[in-house]
Amino acid sequence: MTDTEIAELLKAGRPEEALARLLQAYRRRVFALAFSFLRDRDAAEDVAQEVFVRLWRALPRYDGRASLSTWIYTITRNASVSALRARRTESSLEDPLVLQAVEESAAEVPDDAAADRASLLRLVDSLPEKQRQVVILFYMDEHSHEEVSEMLAMPVGTVKTLLHRARARLAASAGVVQSSEAI
């Protein structure tokens, strides 16, 4: 799906079809980006809904000149930051809803694997904010460095650096470190 196709659907007076295509292409990404900010499945879903509502309202004005993905990610980041500010308590990946989702998807795997997942999520949760966001986006849907860079509006090099540092921290904490070296 290209931005031009969406613009043409809108021009042809088929906004419902345009929205359906956008949902198909961006639902997971918008949710993942919101989740990387909020670390709360329900809150991230609320933000994702809000993003698509805003998108729906603004779609008639879209003419295909601006990049849709940039626009969608900007709306998502802004909505996530607003939601984060509106929340009184910090949530974490240890949120019961997140752990429940993990457990549901881990129903067929042995208990020790489920425990490993829970402990890894706790480790990710303890990372500095930007590192945590990069890790969540990189591993949640296996987005590329470039995609993560676009989603977070930061240079690809920064994404790689943050990911490298986060992996190193996680590896050290998860007990897979082989050696240490000053960089």
Binding site: R41, A101, S105, Y139, M140, E142, L170
Partner: peptide, 16 residues
């Protein structure tokens, strides 16, 4: 190994 475990850790976190 870490990559595999991280991918597995985030699997299943999605919208309802």
């Amino acid at each position: 190994d870490l990559d595999r475990r991280l991918r597995r850790a985030f699997r299943g976190i999605d919208t309802r």
